[in-house]
């Protein structure tokens, strides 16, 4: 126990200051009223849904919870059920096998709710989604519905392969900040 406490004291506080919201990440006009966002801004529950990713984005979502980014310190936490969630954080091109589960998760999340699409695949289908030989992808395939907004409405998109923890945090903070 002595070693454990000594290590905690020696480690100190690693948390860095969070990024500022970026209006460029916002997809649609604000779906939620400012007053609600004000409330979300001080305590937010997120349900993560992997809709078919390669698990690269999951690595970075995990990293957002480490001591450097310390998302919990901002009053934001990941919850186990969509019933408890204010926001869905969705990764991956939406595989056809996950489309129903994603829609049901969205429907199970109480209003008002926000959706943030994480990663290139969630934003535009990414590398997986085209069988026509075009290098940029983007369309659908026999196994993939492509981008998240093909299946459920999206408020904010964060690109990157995978996006950095700072970019993910910025996307989340943009979604809950009132539009300028």
């Amino acid at each position: 126990m002595y070693q454990l406490i000594k290590q905690i004291i020696k480690t100190g506080i690693k948390t860095e200051s969070p990024p500022l919201p970026d209006e460029a990440l916002r997809v649609d006009a604000q779906r939620l009223q400012e007053e609600i966002l004000h409330v979300f801004g001080s305590a937010l529950n997120i349900r993560h849904v992997d809709a078919g990713s390669c698990n690269g984005c999951e690595l970075e979502i995990h990293a957002v919870t480490n001591a450097y980014y310390n998302i919990k310190g901002l009053g934001i936490k990941f919850v186990a059920s969509p019933r408890h969630a204010d926001m869905l954080l969705v990764t991956g091109p939406v595989s056809r096998h996950m489309a129903t589960a994603l829609k049901r998760t969205f429907d199970a999340t109480p209003e008002p709710k926000l959706v943030v699409a994480i990663g290139d695949c969630a934003c535009d289908g990414g590398i997986f989604c085209s069988n026509d030989g075009s290098p940029d992808g983007g369309s659908e395939s026999y196994a993939s519905c492509g981008k998240v907004s093909n299946v459920i409405p999206v408020d904010v998109m964060v690109s990157g392969c995978p996006p950095t923890p700072t970019a993910i945090l910025q996307g989340i903070l943009t979604a809950i900040s009132a539009q300028k």
């Binding site: 992997d50 078919g52 990713s53 991956g92 091109p93 595989s95 096998h97 996950m98 589960a101 590398i127 997986f128 989604c129 085209s130 069988n131 395939s141 026999y142 196994a143 993939s144």
Partner: peptide, 11 residues
Amino acid sequence: LGYTHKGIEKR
């Protein structure tokens, strides 16, 4: 399993 099947081999 198979939920994240996204057609990698076809791609």
